[in-house]
Design a protein around this nucleic acid. Structure first.
Length: 191
DNA sequence: GGAATGATGTACT
DNA sequence: GTACATCATTCCG
């Protein structure tokens, strides 16, 4: 499901504004106790309950005490499989996003799971909500240009760090740790 | 009850 | 490259 999610549209209609963007980076977390990095690894708890619920719903949780991270719960139901939304190319509602994010560059609006949630006004209340229909949802889209998908190790985890379950669009400026982003002078490169 | 620990982001050197 | 804000969740006793 993770690679198929790339290119799809994340939409949120909130407060009279329509926020939208293309998903360009995700991470897969395996179910059925096969993935030590997954919140679902040790079975259901009060926090991860929605991971074991119906597929096609969001699993939203608080990370590091302050950030919110959004996942899409995947099949089969009850397995705990999910895909973390890591980066989005913003397309609609950029002014609203800029205000929410403190007026940063367009490409820095949604290049990170915490940033994305902030820019799209995703809250803990969205945990367990349907991603197929609702104010916050994911819509199918086809690529209108030629893109190349790459994969590599997941970011910011200890256990299962060698598993290549991070999928992203090659050469896309809105992906985390993008060389294009660094080349733009936003984060000076050594040497 | 108490302590360790994050699927992060930002600022600063 | 390193520091740190910040707190719910989880695990252990």
């Amino acid at each position: 499901m993770a690679p198929q999610l790339l290119g799809m549209l994340l939409v949120h209609e909130t407060g009279g504004v329509r926020l939208a963007g293309r998903i360009v980076e995700v991470e897969a977390y395996l179910g059925n106790g096969r993935d030590p990095a997954s919140h679902a690894y040790k079975g259901p708890t009060p926090r991860n309950g929605s991971m074991f619920g119906a597929p096609g719903r969001f699993y939203v949780y608080r990370c590091m005490g302050l950030h919110r991270l959004a996942n899409l719960v995947c099949e089969p139901e009850g397995s705990g499989a999910a895909v973390l939304l890591r980066a989005v190319e913003p397309l609609e509602g950029l002014e609203w996003m800029r205000a929410a994010r403190g007026g940063c560059h367009e490409r820095d609006l949604c290049n990170g799971p915490g940033k994305l949630a902030q820019a799209f006004d995703i809250e803990l209340a969205h945990d367990g909500c349907s991603a197929l229909r609702g104010a916050l949802r994911i819509e199918a889209r086809r690529w209108t240009q030629v893109v190349r998908m790459r994969r590599g190790p997941r970011i910011g985890i200890r256990r299962g760090a060698d598993l290549p379950y991070r999928f992203f669009i090659d050469q896309h400026p809105c992906v985390t740790r993008s060389p294009l982003n660094r080349a733009a002078g936003l984060a000076p490169r050594r040497g």
